[in-house]
């Protein structure tokens, strides 16, 4: 896959190849480009959520209707998903989640640290396979493999994109 700065485009190509049709999200600065690419694509329905657990439920419904989806969030959103992940594990729904990490690397907001440091463990405890990735050039291939595992295996899989990749310079005081 492409150069370091193009990882959102790499993910988007994987979405198209994997026939992802619904992309549900609570925005994160790190997902801005990917969200915009999805919103601009007529083959993908980009669905803004009021809380991340809605996305877990929404994508279960999408699968019931024969469509694949992906859930985008930042690490603080992981905690909002935990109970709803019971729906995924009990019914063996596939779930592909892409989590941009906060509270890890050059973080200016300490309130991001509790979820940023623990969201991988919390996802594992809730029955989700977790793939952390901290090299931009490997994000595309990691999402590709995570998608295969999720949709062919009926498994919840989350890719955790390290804050080091996203770049601490993105997180000026004007952005949350």
């Amino acid at each position: 896959m492409g150069q370091a700065s193009a990882w959102p485009d790499d993910i988007f190509r994987v979405f198209r190849q994997a026939d992802i049709r619904q992309v549900a999200y609570v925005p994160d600065a790190g997902h801005t480009r990917l969200i915009n690419l999805c919103r601009d694509d007529n083959a993908i329905r980009a669905i803004g959520l009021t809380t991340e657990e809605e996305g877990v439920a929404l994508l279960a419904g999408a699968w019931l209707g024969g469509q694949r989806g992906a859930l985008l969030m930042q690490s603080s959103g992981v905690g909002n998903c935990i109970n709803m992940l019971s729906l995924i594990t009990q019914c063996r729904f596939p779930l592909l989640s892409l989590v941009t990490m906060r509270g890890q690397w050059g973080e200016f907001n300490p309130w991001q640290v509790p979820m940023g440091q623990n969201s991988g463990e919390q996802l594992r405890l809730a029955g989700t396979l977790v793939y952390p990735v901290d090299e931009a050039s490997r994000i595309g291939e990691t999402v590709e493999q995570a998608a295969r595992l999720a949709f062919e295996g009926g498994i919840s899989v989350a890719v955790l994109i390290a804050q080091r990749v996203i770049g601490s310079k993105t997180f000026g005081k004007s952005e949350q």
């Binding site: 049709r21 439920a57 699968w63």
Partner: peptide, 14 residues
């Protein structure tokens, strides 16, 4: 709390 969201994903797909 998930009923409407499940139905929404299904309605979009179908």
């Amino acid at each position: 709390g998930g009923t409407v969201a499940i139905a929404l994903g299904l309605a979009v797909a179908q």
